[in-house]
Nucleic acid binder design. Structure first.
Length: 756
DNA sequence: AACTTGCAAGTGCCTCGCCG
DNA sequence: CGGCGAGGCACTTGCAAGTT
């Protein structure tokens, strides 16, 4: 009897427990709907508390508002002078040159010194790990006399706000930053409400001067201070990501922080000299103006304002998930759960004032969505198995995650049709611009694969025999058909479609080198219509084992009628193979000192024209809603762009619009002309990257083409390890091929041979 | 680890001229 | 006539490098 009663009781107890759990879930659910903040404070096992250094949201909002008003009222139309007149000779970093400022008295003491100068080098250290919105920890200011002050913003937040605002907002003091537009300026706004103006950005200036990409401060140190800066790349990365909210800061950290601002003014000066030497001071002025326009219009965006519960998770989810299959129930379920715990993570992070990624990283969220653990123990197991580290806060909220997962499982719609419909109606709804971009990207990728993969069967493997029955080669159906229609051949089989020529083809009977006889086997072997790398029979396209960049500069006898070095690859393998090719190209470029980058002036002018198109497009499309000031600058830009490349562009302007350039008064016709201005046609010579031809010529001169071709074949085999290459494909496949004596590809010496 | 950005490069398709 | 490669076109991508 006991054997029956006891298990029954257990089952009943379990049932009650389960019911209880469900009840809790429902309660939570109603709370989610009523108030997410409420729900969390009642569910979390520890009180929500702010990071002691964090700034209250109300304060941040007030700061931003304040900075924007100041910018609008006083800086909107202001012109600044970006010229540095001080003489600042190079001076090596020295730890005795900096002071740590951590009291209001010290701050007030240095103020007078700071106000003496017209230029200051400034860098900031922000902390974002242990805080939802982040906060500034340190301000480094260096004077032209190389006095550096490290100001502790944690201790002195109110004092900084009181005493330093005048410097950041001053039109008399030029502030030298490195890469400040998206970060530093916004942080100063967030933490202190500063409307920073009159800024010189060394990164932007360098970019303009060398028409290059963004450069690191490290690069500038190496360029302008040679080997006298004693900080390595590793050290820089390490310190950049250090916890700057820690107190006291270590000696190494202080040294590093002081380094960051120490050389800024010197570098700015050197840049200014560079511009001056090239007679381009005006360009420097333009860059500064651009940067300052951005600082004036900067507005710090609160993380919680950017977060949208129905959208933000999607971006992350699509990045981490393999493929996308709205017809697969499990897939939909995983996304449904991911959304739940992603949003929960965001809410908790906001409540406990932590960086969401620090609380729990995305890959862990995804792991939990797939494994769906419903208890602390299960979660632990899942995390341990995957080797995931957890921090203490996350351990404290695991129960909440489990409840949420259970909740999402309960809420997952039973009716799949409705869900799929929902999906299909989704893409265009409620996506912000970034997500919309991502969605379009996905769609485009699909389109690209469809567009670029071969539409028809590449190898039809029809056979062509000589009159005496020797297999000559494979060919496609169309060609075989052509011979039959002309009564030049007879069909002797239909599967595979096989023909026998009625005439003796040219080029046979001549003695051939042994290896070429072997290679002929390659040309009579069936070639399969699938990726030679992975065997996929879908979405393949041709791939050139020797990059076209080089191959196009080969002499005819090396490239004509060669199918050996063209293979089929599926889209994925194609991408990989191209990347691998790029690596080797770079190595070759370095080895032979032939740069891959192309500075062809004819190409550069097209970049310029693109810029003109863009400015004109803005003027055409948005002119009516632009502020007068902004419209005027754009119009000015347009003229300046023309003047910059006057010699090339002036001939393109119709006569009746030429006056515009002289009077600088822009009319609609001129804007439309700029909008429609086409890029100059590039001749094929201009299109060709000179690197390819130069290298090939060099190799040809050294008579090492054979090695060069084999190098690429070997590289392909080594990096891809293709498993489905056609029979007979070989790295040693002959490089040159014999042609009939009348062929234009026949070499001169062959011709002479024939004449004898 | 996450995000942003400009550049270089390569795709299929089309047309052309050459060859057999 | 059909194959072939080159030249031209329109289009997009991945990568590298920057920031914290």
């Amino acid at each position: 009897m006991l054997y029956i009663v006891f298990p029954s009781i257990l089952i009943i107890l379990l049932f009650i427990y389960r019911l209880q759990k469900r009840r809790v879930s429902k309660e939570i659910q109603s709370q989610i709907r009523s108030d997410k903040v409420n729900r969390l404070s009642s569910q979390l096992h520890f009180p929500a508390k702010q990071n002691e250094h964090s700034i209250k949201i109300q304060q941040i909002k007030y700061n931003i508002e304040n900075a924007c008003v100041v910018n609008y009222n006083t800086n909107k139309d202001q012109e600044f002078n970006y010229k540095i007149t001080e003489k600042v000779p190079f001076k090596e970093f020295n730890a005795r040159l900096y002071q740590y400022i951590d009291s209001a008295d010290k701050l007030q003491e240095i103020l007078q010194n700071l106000y003496r100068y017209n230029v200051l080098g400034i860098d900031l250290e922000n902390h974002h790990l242990n805080s939802y919105n982040g906060f500034l920890c340190l301000i480094q200011i260096t004077t032209p006399n190389y006095e550096t002050y490290l100001i502790d913003c944690l201790k002195l937040r109110e004092d900084v706000k009181t005493y330093l605002g005048a410097i950041f907002e001053s039109s008399n003091t030029l502030k030298v930053f490195h890469g400040c537009v998206n970060s530093d300026i916004a942080w100063l706004q967030r933490d202190f409400g500063f409307a920073t103006v009159n800024v010189f950005d060394t990164q932007e200036a360098y970019k303009k001067l060398f028409k290059g990409q963004r450069v690191s401060l490290l690069h500038l140190w190496q360029t302008y201070c040679k080997d006298r800066v004693k900080i390595t790349k590793d050290q820089k990365n390490q310190f950049q990501q250090a916890d700057w909210s820690a107190r006291p800061l270590t000696k190494e950290m202080l040294d590093y922080a002081a380094h960051d601002s120490h050389y800024l003014i010197y570098i700015a000066l050197r840049l200014q000299q560079n511009f001056e030497n090239q007679n381009k001071l005006q360009e420097l002025d333009e860059v500064c103006k651009e940067v300052n326009e951005k600082t004036v219009n900067a507005k710090y965006a609160l993380r919680q304002d950017q977060f949208k519960p129905d959208e933000t998770y999607k971006v992350q989810f699509r990045k981490i998930v393999d493929g996308f299959d709205p017809n697969n129930e499990e897939f939909l379920k995983i996304e449904f759960i991911f959304k739940g715990i992603y949003n929960l993570r965001e809410n908790i992070a906001e409540q406990v004032d932590k960086n969401p990624d620090e609380l729990c990283d995305i890959s862990t969220l995804y792991l939990l969505s797939t494994k769906k653990p419903l208890s602390y123990i299960e979660t632990r197991k899942v995390l341990d198995e995957a080797g995931k580290q957890t921090n203490s806060i996350f351990r404290q909220v695991i129960e909440n995650f489990c409840i949420e997962i259970q909740q999402r499982l309960d809420d997952f719609p039973k009716n799949m049709d409705a869900m799929i419909q929902h999906y299909k109606s989704q893409p265009n709804q409620g996506l912000n611009s970034q997500q919309e971009r991502l969605r379009l990207k996905e769609e485009r990728k699909k389109k690209i694969i469809k567009h670029y993969s071969c539409k028809k069967v590449v190898y039809e493997n029809c056979k062509m025999f000589s009159p005496d029955g020797e297999l000559l080669s494979n060919c496609d159906f169309k060609k075989a058909q052509w011979y039959i229609e002309r009564e030049l051949a007879d069909q002797i089989s239909s599967d595979p479609f096989t023909i026998k020529l009625r005439f003796e083809p040219n080029g046979r009977g001549q003695p051939k080198p042994l290896e070429e006889l072997y290679d002929d086997n390659f040309y009579v072997t069936d070639r399969e219509n699938k990726c030679v790398n992975c065997g996929s029979e879908k979405d393949y396209s041709r791939f050139h084992v020797i990059p076209t960049l080089y191959r196009q500069s080969f002499p005819d006898e090396l490239k004509s009628h060669r199918s050996h070095d063209v293979v089929l690859l599926c889209f994925t393998c194609h991408e990989k193979a191209s990347r691998e090719q790029d690596n080797l190209k770079k190595q070759l470029a370095e080895k032979y000192n032939i740069p891959l980058n192309d500075h062809n002036p004819n190409k550069l002018i097209n970049l310029h024209i693109q810029q003109i198109n863009r400015v004109a497009s803005t003027l055409k499309k948005a002119s009516f809603r632009l502020p007068d000031e902004k419209r005027a600058t754009l119009q000015k830009n347009l003229i300046e762009l023309f003047l910059e490349k006057k010699e090339q562009l002036l001939p393109l302007i119709p006569d009746d619009l030429k006056g515009v350039i002289e009077t600088e008064e822009i009319n609609n016709e001129f804007i439309m002309f700029c909008y429609n201005l086409p890029p100059t046609r590039l001749s094929n010579k201009d299109k060709q990257n000179p690197h390819g031809k130069i290298l090939v010529d060099k190799i040809l001169g050294e008579d090492r083409m054979s090695d060069f071709i084999k190098l690429w074949r070997t590289h392909f085999i080594k990096t891809m390890e293709p498993k489905f290459l056609p029979w007979g494909w070989s790295v040693d496949h002959t490089i040159e091929r014999s042609f009939g004596v009348f062929s234009k590809f026949a070499r001169k010496e062959d011709e002479q041979e024939n004449h004898k």
